[in-house]
Nucleic acid binder design. Structure first.
Length: 859
RNA sequence: GCCCGCUUGGCGAAAUCGGCAGACGCAACGGACUUAAAAUCCGUAUCCCGACACGGGAGUGGGGGUUCGAGUCCCCCAGCGGGCACCA
């Protein structure tokens, strides 16, 4: 008995694939293409189990499609810009570039040890000038097209670290690192006009039929189209009208107040000489912005004393409040409130004692009863109905009333129908060093001047310091000083760099022609794009995927690409989880610090008791991590890959267990023993060709099992049912282990079944498959073999076994000839002892016979 | 609070179109092999009643419904997980 030497095997097959450049691909219009892409990793240091799962999934798809005859593009690269590199520089004094490229080298080696079918010649790193120079060129194209622009916007400013913070870096109003109170500050920033494509991005979700429904829904909600009306209220004593957006203009006669955002220009203006209002606004800006916090938070307002004239009721005016629940970024930053028909408005009205006038009569309620009743209590009526208390709208339905209001507002020049989106323009400015420099120059006389194309890339300087707070680029002594390309005068480079989501918004296109002198080679991109199967985590459901969809559109406009939807298929995988452990002091423990003994779970070294927590997504902070490199060193890549594909459906979370890995390891060795150590008769290579026919008994049974397995595994792989496919493979393996017939037809059947099984495991366990392919005496590489095809002749059985029910309850089974008539089934079913027993002398009222499925006797 | 998802043996799960619930694996138990252990192989395994066998009953989070037949479809409820934008 020989033991499978995975170390030697995996190293040598990887070397063979590399030497023969098996996975190097080129565009070939004569062949169908298939582009498999997993979300590229951030080079954080070492790969984690989430990567192993993600890249195994993609590799199985890539290898399977390759075997099916597709010209498969399967590239890899690095999302290499970002804050962690700067944090490492601050904490350890290493330069971001050094740290990043070091991490890339480690992670590339680790990924290569997994045996992935990647064309490494196409590797890219977004921090390389060869990549970001093209990003700069595209930025300039977008600037010309009016898609990139500059405006002021509010940011969280940390006055100690001298830097802008993300929302998640602001904890209880203080900076995460400095602990300083955060200020809201207005900064001039660069934006990409994604809102121009809001409708297209929404509409085209419909054609992404190979995306998870859930992701499409999330994007739809994020874009958030709402149809309504803009209404301009005349403000008494002011020249400027107050413009309001509403979706319920039908309830205009029920309006009892207007409210504006604390950030509304009118609020800012009024606060200038109203200290109380200024204090209220300051308080609002300290309030959390999460929906959950707000929902439970008290609705508060500040009466400005200003009054807005009702557009249709002469002499009536509405108080204008500054309110903590009105957002500046949505609509016009101002609303009118109709308390009877909006819960939030009702809460507000009750608090400030404002009128609550119902203007919608609920469906099916008598008008007289309703008006005589208690009116609106603590619950607003938000449903459909008939307009009341609304002058010329009375008697109309909601939609009709909306149309009428819009028409009359239009006539009076006080408003019109409007559509707004929740989606906001994409702010790409970052006051950071380790990112793609924005290629513009600020000149006192010429304004914003693009860096001339022939001067690209604007390269990041190497000699920056991280020992002082603030943006190292802005603090660099010489980098930003430059002559204006237009007038030659003294000018200053833009020191903002781009959001790293920009880097990842077009990398899929760059892979098509990774060394081209332009961002993308159109010929290559037109052949390879779109990505046929994109695979990654659900955490990127909105931002990354939406930005990429927008970016592709922008690139199409600028002539770089021909496809607007970059990913025709998307799969979102679940997380890798592990139990959590804590010692007696409540400190997290690594799994390998924990031992299971007769006394329960204890600390491996000290023997002290350990409390076991629930399984959670692997994270460094909770220490419930298992290092892929250690697993691959102990069990090999094929075992790790098999475990990733077994048991759990890929879209669900996967529970990492040592026992599960051991199980996968046992299967790898069992396969090796059954095939490589086989001593039973085995026909010569090639002797299994052609449809045999005439087999009987065990040989026929095993051939049927084999062909059925081919059909089912193929179907499972097409549908991402990898756990099912693995179960099918194990079933065939079990059948082959029991198959001990030794005549000539058994020898042929064995040859065919072994060959097929080895081909079927290829995508999941590529090294073992190559080793077994060779062991079976075949020439060439398994990776070059076509995917097996099931012979339909073996997929049909002579007989079928039917369940027989009495009143829906199983009482026995019958075996009848396939395609037999109903009468035979009925007679056989009624003759079953179990059925006779259950009938207990009663005559059957009805017998339902579903051919090849079931017989149900009804009494 | 709103939106989305999930809930099947001790555990991960399968059941693809409404048709024999629990395939496949993990853990467990019994046996073979071994001086012994590991590895391997064979077997048992949803629960309850039944000494065994034969058999019977219950069973897919809970309650109701549609159907000859429901894990699957419909309604209500509960629990768990995730997301969140005060969206006018």
């Amino acid at each position: 008995m020989t033991r499978y030497n995975f170390k030697q095997s995996e190293t040598s097959w990887q070397a063979t694939w590399r030497e023969r450049n098996v996975f190097g691909v080129a565009a070939d219009p004569s062949r169908p293409k298939y582009y498999v892409l997993e979300m590229f990793p951030y080079p954080s240091g070492r790969i984690h189990m989430g990567h192993v799962r993600n890249y195994t999934l993609g590799d199985v798809v890539a290898r399977y499609k390759r075997a099916c005859g597709y010209n498969v593009l399967h590239p890899m690269g690095w999302d290499a810009f970002g804050l962690p590199a700067e944090n490492a520089a601050i904490e350890r004094g290493t330069s971001p570039a050094e740290w990043t490229y070091g991490n890339i080298a480690t992670m590339r080696r680790q990924l290569q040890s997994m045996g992935l079918s990647i064309d490494w010649a196409r590797e890219i790193a977004t921090c390389h000038p060869g990549y970001y120079r093209h990003q700069q060129a595209m930025f300039l194209a977008f600037l010309r097209d009016g898609l990139a622009y500059r405006r002021e916007s509010w940011v969280n400013w940390d006055p100690v670290d001298n830097t802008v913070l993300a929302n998640e870096q602001v904890i209880d109003g203080r900076g995460w690192r400095s602990g300083a109170l955060i200020e809201r500050r207005k900064l001039s920033q660069w934006f990409l006009r994604i809102t121009a494509d809001a409708q297209a991005l929404l509409d085209d979700l419909a054609i992404l039929d190979r995306w998870p429904e859930r992701v499409r829904l999330m994007q739809q909600n994020w874009i958030g189209r709402s149809e309504g009306a803009r209404i301009r209220f005349v403000v008494e004593g002011q020249s400027e009208p107050l413009e309001v957006f509403t979706t319920r203009h039908d309830t205009l006669f029920g309006a009892s107040f207007c409210a504006i955002s604390p950030n509304h220009p009118l609020a800012t203006a009024l606060a200038a000489d109203n200290a109380d209002l200024a204090a209220f606004i300051a308080e609002c800006s300290r309030l959390g912005t999460s929906e959950e916090a707000i929902e439970t938070a008290e609705k508060r307002g500040f009466d400005t004393g200003l009054r807005a004239r009702h557009p249709f009721v002469a002499g009536q005016s509405l108080p204008i409040y500054v309110a903590n629940f009105v957002l500046m970024d949505y609509g016009t930053g101002a609303i009118f409130g109709c308390p009877a028909h909006d819960q939030r408005d009702l809460d507000f009205a009750r608090k400030y004692d404002l009128a609550v006038l119902p203007v919608i009569l609920p469906e099916g309620v008598d008008a007289a009863d309703f008006l005589a009743g208690p009116g609106i209590g603590d619950e607003a009526y938000v449903g459909n109905g008939t307009l009341i208390n609304s002058a010329f709208l009375d008697g109309m339905g909601v939609d009709e009333a909306k149309a009428e209001v819009a028409r009359r507002l239009g006539e009076a020049g006080l408003g019109e129908v409007a559509v707004t989106y929740r989606l906001r323009d994409w702010g790409i400015s970052r006051q950071r060093y380790w990112g793609c420099p924005i290629p513009v120059i600020h000149c006192a006389t010429c304004g914003i001047v693009p860096v001339p194309e022939d001067e690209l890339p604007v390269v990041l300087p190497d000699d920056v310091r991280f020992d002082t707070p603030g943006n190292p680029l802005a603090d660099h002594p010489s980098w930003k000083h430059v002559a204006c390309p237009t007038c030659g005068g003294e000018a200053r480079r833009e020191t903002d760099t781009m959001d790293t989501f920009v880097d990842s918004s077009w990398y899929y296109a760059r892979y098509c022609s990774p060394r081209a002198d332009e961002p993308v080679d159109r010929g290559e991109a037109d052949y390879w794009l779109p990505v046929d199967q994109y695979i990654g985590g659900i955490e990127h459901a909105i931002l990354h995927l939406l930005y990429s969809r927008f970016f592709a559109r922008a690139m199409v406009r600028a002539g770089y690409l021909g496809v607007e939807e970059p990913f025709s298929g998307l799969f979102t995988q679940g997380m890798v989880c592990h139990e959590t452990y804590k010692d007696e002091e409540g400190k997290w423990l690594f799994p390998d610090e924990v031992a299971r003994t007769a006394n329960g779970v204890v600390h491996a070294r000290t023997g002290a008791p350990v409390s076991v927590g629930r399984s959670e997504s692997m994270s460094k902070s909770k220490r419930n991590v298992v290092d892929p490199e250690a697993i691959i060193a102990t069990y090999g890549a094929d075992t790790a890959r098999l475990f990733m594909m077994s048991d759990s459906p890929p879209e669900r979370d996967l529970e990492w267990t040592d026992a599960g890995v051991e199980g996968a390891w046992r299967y790898v060795n069992r396969l090796w023993r059954i095939i490589a150590d086989n001593t039973l008769p085995l026909a010569a290579v090639g002797a299994d060709a052609g449809s045999g026919a005439g087999e009987t008994g065990a040989a026929l049974a095993i051939l049927r099992e084999t062909h059925r397995t081919v059909a089912r595994v193929t179907d499972d792989l097409e549908k991402f049912g990898f756990n099912r496919a693995v179960a099918r493979l194990r079933e065939l393996t079990n059948a082959l282990a029991d198959f001990d017939a030794s005549d000539a037809s058994a020898a042929r059947a064995r040859r065919l079944s072994f060959t097929v099984l080895v081909k079927l495991i290829g995508p999941v366990m590529p090294h073992l498959a190559e080793a077994l392919w060779q062991k079976l005496g075949n020439d060439g590489l398994l990776v070059d073999q076509p995917w097996p095809v099931a012979d339909p002749a073996y997929l049909v059985d002579d007989t079928v076994r039917l369940g027989v029910q009495v009143n829906g309850k199983l009482r026995g089974t019958i075996e009848i000839a396939a395609g037999g008539d109903e009468e035979t089934s009925r007679a056989a079913a009624l003759a079953l002892p179990g059925v006779i027993n259950a009938l207990n002398g009663r005559p059957p009222r009805k017998v339902v016979v579903v051919p090849n499925r079931i017989v149900n006797v009804v009494v």
